[in-house]
Computed example of a mutant assay.
Amino acid sequence: MAFLGLRKWPTPVARPLWAFVAATSVTVYLVSSIQEMGIKSDTYKNDPRNPYAEKIARQEKAAHH
């Protein structure tokens, strides 16, 4: 018997969505790593429009010492 449309057992939500959660996490990781590679590439490393140029310069300076 359904009371106000509710079933005796709840409809599973998390179990069918595991593939979407996994795909989202993989996609976020890959996009993040590609962005990081692009920011640190030789072409854009010294570009003044790069908001991370100062941070990259400090890291390279520390690595040489």
Rank of each mutant, 00 (worst) to 15 (best):
S33V: 13
A53Q: 06
E60A: 05
A62I: 07
K40H: 05
L4N: 14
W9E: 04
A57M: 10
K61R: 11
R7D: 12
P16N: 01
R58W: 07
G38N: 12
N50A: 06
E60D: 11
A53F: 03
A22V: 12
G5Y: 06
L17G: 04
Y29F: 13
L4D: 15
M37E: 13
Q35E: 14
S41E: 12
E60R: 14
A57N: 03
K8V: 14
P10G: 02
R49T: 04
Y44I: 02
A62W: 10
K61W: 04
S33L: 15
P48Y: 01
Y44V: 05
Q59W: 01
E36C: 08
T43K: 13
K8Y: 08
P51Q: 03
A57F: 04
V13E: 09
T24F: 04
S33R: 13
G5L: 14
A22Y: 12
P12K: 00
I56D: 00
E54I: 15
L17F: 11
E36W: 11
K55A: 05
A19D: 05
T11M: 09
T43P: 02
R58P: 05
P16C: 03
N46D: 14
R58Y: 10
Q35Y: 11
Y29W: 12
L4A: 14
W18F: 12
V21A: 09
A63H: 06
V28T: 07
P10H: 04
L17I: 01
K55H: 01
V31R: 08
I56N: 01
T11D: 03
P51C: 04
A57V: 04
Y44S: 08
V28G: 00
A23C: 15
P12S: 01
A53I: 03
P51L: 02
L30T: 12
K8E: 15
L4E: 12
T24E: 01
Y52W: 12
H65E: 03
V28M: 08
K55Y: 09
E36D: 08
P12T: 00
T43I: 08
A57G: 06
V21I: 11
S32P: 00
K55P: 00
K45H: 06
P10L: 14
E60M: 07
S32T: 13
R58F: 09
D47P: 02
V21M: 02
D42P: 00
A14Q: 04
Q59C: 05
L6Q: 14
L30A: 15
A62P: 04
S25P: 01
N50Y: 01
A23E: 07
